[in-house]
């Protein structure tokens, strides 16, 4: 096993979003599975961060951090349901 769980996304995503997205519920565009961002399978030993669906292993999120910007690709995510305080 060379992935860690989606809690590893907390720091990177907090830099971009004002809320902690690991508690959000995402829906995979590959298989429709709904689960928390924290439950994703995260591959970090790569040119960017890749999070995959724990059910079908499709890519649901890609995050590339450049020198002065970041690219967040969410095409594998149908939606994010984000709890608000």
């Amino acid at each position: 096993m060379n992935h860690v769980d989606g809690n590893a996304l907390a720091g990177d995503l907090r830099e971009i979003f004002a809320v902690d997205l690991t508690a959000a519920t995402g829906q995979c565009s590959g298989c429709g599975y709904k689960g928390s961002v924290a439950s994703l399978r995260v591959y970090q030993n790569a040119p960017g961060v890749v999070a995959r669906c724990p059910h079908c292993e499709e890519v649901v999120l890609r995050l590339v951090r450049g020198r002065d910007r970041a690219w967040l690709d969410l095409r594998g995510t149908v939606s994010l349901e984000i709890p608000l305080p």
Binding site: N2, Y43, V50, E57, V59
Partner: peptide
Amino acid sequence: FPVLTAGPT
């Protein structure tokens, strides 16, 4: 020779 991967091998 570092191993980088974006998913399961």
